[in-house]
Amino acid sequence: MSRVLDVVRMHLLVRLTFVTLPLIILGGAFALTLAIFALIPSDGIKIAGAGQAPLWYFLSVGVMAQTRTFPFSQAMSTTRREFFLGTMLTGLLASGALAALFVVLGLIEKATDGWGMNGRMYFIDDFGGGNVAVAFLAYLVIAMLAFTTGLTFATVYKRFKVLGLWAAIAGVVVALLLAIVAITKTSSWPAVGDFLIDAGPLGLAAIGVAVIAVVGLADYLVLRRTQP
């Protein structure tokens, strides 16, 4: 276990990937969105999606965690299992920190009536249904899902090169398309909609966790035979 924690410490030795770049993205997206809010000459609700950028940016945090640190971890004689567990734990810690920041910013946004400009970028009530803990969980799951996805595709690339990467992407796209076709053919869209609404924020988070588990397992299975 201590070697898994050492992998976490190794990831955080150079703060660029997990700390500096996400904070720059967060700060940049925040400042840019505020500027845009200020430029819109309306008193209505102003909605901006750019505030979510740091969440999606965790896709590339996952990519960098693999490409930049896995070869070095092999020189440090870690097992692939230790690297995987330590990397997922690092992603979880960073996702948690980002989610906490989002909650704080979301609460400020709410308290200041949208930064005094009726703007919305953190959508804390939409994510949490009025519950701060649920909003935190939602942010956490989205960041972690992005992280795990980036990590897995980077591992696929490392092991199977470009062709393998595109095969994996094509596989995911085809699977999604098939699902859409199947739902449409069986006219199940209302049922799917009801299911998602019934699931509620907590149910959606649970689905997210399940997807993270599946994608993470895939990463581990590919990593087991990956060379540095």
């Binding site: 030795l13 150079v14 640190t69 540095p228």
Partner: peptide
């Protein structure tokens, strides 16, 4: 085992 072509963490 440190390889002749060892890769280190970026920016490290």
């Amino acid at each position: 085992f440190v390889r002749e072509s060892q890769q280190y963490q970026d920016e490290s």
